[in-house]
Each structure stands twice: as structure tokens, then as C-alpha cells.
Amino acid sequence: MVVGRIGRPHGVRGEVTVEVRTDDPDLRFVLGAVLRTDPVDRGPVTVTGRRWHRDVLLLQFEGPGGRVVDSREAAEEYRDTELHVPITDLPELDDPDAFYDHQLVGLSARLPDGTVLGEVTAVRHEGADLLVVRRVEDGELLIPFVAAIVPTVDLTVGVVVVDPPEGLLDL
């Protein structure tokens, strides 16, 4: 599961900015955490330092074989690298109405009457959570992932029910 993406270097000592893609960065980016990478030839990486600079997470890390990333040039080599944690390392969710993104991707999106809208291809976190649905005909829909619009998520059947307000599907 993707938990972040390395951005530009910060300073000259090997720190990098991280675009956080997890709701719990304090758990995912602890000192000593080993994260898989994509592309895979850049990792795994081990977190050796972390701090917040305003609203931006800054990380320091070691690359494969304990290679210390301690310069701006070395950090630049990791730009645009996605950071992953194995799905098996994720804790169980206590809230029955909470889901990991990987659980939602691939589900069939249907209207309450059973009409198929398409397939959930991604979940975007842009202030509000949005389901990205590839339509059966063509194009994509962005569906706000709130109980009023998505009243049912059935992982065993592989379906999300979308009850859109008037006009949402016309956008």
C-alpha cells in the first residue's frame, strides 16, 4: 500500500520532502521503519530521521545495503519514488465503516437499482475522499466517499452502492 511519495530534496544533508498518502504518518514513518519502493531498484529504504517543517514531512533514510543518503545529490536520486508498506503490516480497522484504499479498488460501483456504473480504480484524498470510478461507457466519475452518497460497501460481494444526488452523474 502506498503511504507516500518522495518529492524534492530539502537542504544539503539528504533530507527529502514527502507527499504523505496515509492518514497516520506518525505510525508509518517512525525511526527504523523499512519501506518498500517503486521503482523497486531504489529500495527498500530505512527511515533514519523525520521531522515536520510547517505542514511538510521531511525524511532522512538509508538506501539498500545501509547506503546513507546524506547529500542533496543522493537525495535527488530518490525523487518521485513511491513508498509502500506491505498490506500484511496494516492493523485491523476498528470502525466497520472505515476501509483501506486497496480494499475499495476493484469493487463494482452500482446504483441502488443494481445498474452498473463502473469499477472503482482509485481513491483520491483531496480534502475530501473521492472514489474514482471508470465508467462502463467511457470516462471517469469522481464520487464523494460519504455515507449519504455511498451508503453501502460490501467487500464480500465486491460492490459499492452509489446513491448520487441529482446531476452528479452528469458532470
Rank of each mutant, 00 (worst) to 15 (best):
R5N: 03
R8T: 03
P9L: 14
H10A: 08
G14W: 10
V16W: 09
E19S: 13
D24N: 10
L27R: 10
R28T: 04
R28F: 04
F29W: 12
V30E: 07
G32Y: 03
A33Y: 00
V34A: 14
V34C: 02
T37C: 00
D38S: 04
R42Q: 14
G43H: 03
P44T: 09
P44M: 08
P44A: 06
V45L: 07
T48G: 01
R50N: 03
R50V: 10
R51S: 10
H53Y: 09
H53A: 11
R54F: 14
D55I: 02
V56L: 09
V56M: 02
V56F: 01
L57M: 12
L58P: 08
L58W: 06
L59G: 05
F61L: 06
P64H: 01
G65R: 07
R67Q: 07
S71K: 13
R72L: 11
A74G: 14
A75S: 07
E77N: 05
E77L: 07
Y78N: 03
Y78V: 00
R79T: 05
R79L: 04
R79Y: 06
D80C: 01
T81M: 02
T81W: 00
L83V: 05
P86K: 00
P86M: 01
I87N: 15
P91V: 12
E92Q: 14
D95F: 09
D95G: 08
D95C: 11
D95K: 06
D95A: 08
P96K: 10
D97W: 08
A98L: 07
D101S: 04
Q103H: 10
Q103S: 01
Q103R: 06
L104C: 08
L107F: 02
S108M: 15
A109K: 11
L111D: 12
P112K: 11
P112I: 03
G114L: 05
G114W: 03
L117H: 12
L117E: 14
V123Q: 11
H125Y: 15
E126F: 09
A128D: 08
L130Q: 04
L130R: 08
V132N: 07
V133D: 14
R134H: 03
R134D: 14
R134S: 10
R135C: 13
V136N: 09
D138E: 15
E140C: 08
F145I: 04
A147M: 10
A148T: 15
A148H: 03
P151A: 15
V153N: 12
D154W: 06
D154T: 13
L155E: 00
T156H: 15
T156Y: 04
V157H: 10
G158M: 13
V159P: 05
V161M: 02
D163E: 14
P165E: 15
P165W: 15
P165R: 00
G167F: 09
L171C: 00
